[in-house]
């Protein structure tokens, strides 16, 4: 298990390194391709040649590529100083540079968006996991019944309807028509947990509906496959009751693949749920990302990308570790 753990950890670190390399590569290459000058983007087109050169020196844009990458990494891990002679700006770790638009540090900007995204992703994840897995299991156990067909029809709708459609439709119904919920306006959890909850309800349900649909189908398929396994027949042949056969033997293997998908989906969402956040006007990472893309704000785009990649790699690592715990064949080779 220890060897497996170390292997996974090394893997994760290498992946993260590759991610920084790629992000930096984009940061370096995009201005070259679009023919824009990062220094100009920082300071504005009206600046004179001297101050542009000053920015260039300060941002290190004149250094060789490798040095620039090294400083980029250093900034992420230990923080860095942008210096032009006596003019020094310290950017603490993890330093993601400065926004072209607002000249703010990217890291605190994104950190302030993180709670919104976390609220959305984790709440929705809990919801879809419960909904998707339970309906999937019931469907599998009642295969061919009316319940099964209803669940699968709902699931088909869930996977085929885009979030902006279901999101707008549910807003129209619950907010504007029935008036059960207030118009969207995010309230931080610490300010008022109750309002936070009410505000998040529709986004959670909308996002969860999409994922629950996939999970229901996946769970159903996994369970059906597991129920046909020889070891399920063995469990019955031993004289175990159906409750143990299903609840212990079948669920144990039927739900294992769900762990993988769940980890990856949650990891991906933590980097921002672009559509849902924008539909519900939630100022999270996904919302920020869209704004940044619209405004050509390269450092912010890269910041979001790095954070998203970071979450995915970490989620992957956790999934691998959990897998090692639940599947002895993985752990013991």
């Amino acid at each position: 298990m220890l060897a497996y753990l170390i292997r996974r950890l090394i893997n994760a670190v290498i992946t993260l390194l590759v991610v920084t390399l790629v992000t930096f590569g984009i940061f370096f290459m995009v201005p070259k391709i679009t023919g824009s000058d990062p220094a100009l983007l920082y300071i504005g087109k009206t600046a004179d040649a001297a101050s542009i050169e000053g920015i260039r020196v300060k941002m290190g844009l004149n250094d060789p590529v490798l040095v620039q990458y090294g400083k980029f990494l250093q900034g992420l891990v230990a923080g860095r100083d942008y210096a032009n002679g006596p003019d020094v700006t310290h950017c603490p770790a993890p330093c993601l540079g400065y926004s072209f638009k607002t000249e703010q540090e990217v890291t605190p900007l994104l950190l302030s968006d993180l709670p919104v995204t976390l609220s959305l992703a984790i709440g929705a994840a809990v919801l879809w996991l419960i909904m998707g897995v339970s309906t999937g299991v019931i469907s599998a156990l009642r295969r061919g019944s009316i319940v099964d067909r209803a669940v699968m029809t709902g699931a088909l709708a869930g996977v085929s309807l885009p979030v902006y459609f279901t999101g707008l439709l549910s807003s129209a119904i619950f907010v504007y028509w029935l008036g059960w919920l207030p118009p969207s306006n995010y309230v931080p959890f610490l300010e008022s947990p109750a309002e936070w909850f009410v505000q998040m309800l529709l986004p959670w349900i909308t996002l969860a509906f999409l994922f629950a649909a996939t999970y229901a189908r996946l769970t159903r398929a996994n369970m059906l496959e597991t129920l046909g396994e020889d070891y399920i027949r063995t469990a019955r042949a031993k004289g175990l009751g159906e409750r143990t056969v299903i609840g212990k033997h079948a669920l144990r293997s039927g739900l294992t693949p769900i762990v993988t998908i769940f980890g990856l989906d949650l990891g991906a969402l933590l980097g921002g749920a672009v559509l849902t956040e924008n539909v519900f006007n939630l100022r999270g990472l996904g919302y920020q990302a869209l704004q940044a893309i619209r405004g050509n704000d390269l450092p912010v785009i890269l910041g979001v990308t790095l954070i998203a990649a970071f979450f995915i790699v970490i989620a992957n690592l956790i999934v691998d570790l959990v897998y090692g715990v639940i599947d002895p064949r993985v752990r013991l080779g």
């Binding site: 396994e229 020889d230 070891y231 027949r233 063995t234 469990a235 019955r236 042949a237 031993k238 004289g239 175990l240 009751g241 033997h249 144990r252 293997s253 294992t256 639940i326 599947d327 002895p328 064949r329």
Partner: peptide
Amino acid sequence: VRALRGGKMAMIFQDPLSAMHPYFT
């Protein structure tokens, strides 16, 4: 019938690898 299964009557299957649960010792 369940009370008899594995008690008074028991069965051995053809492929013991697939007939044993992979996640339990």
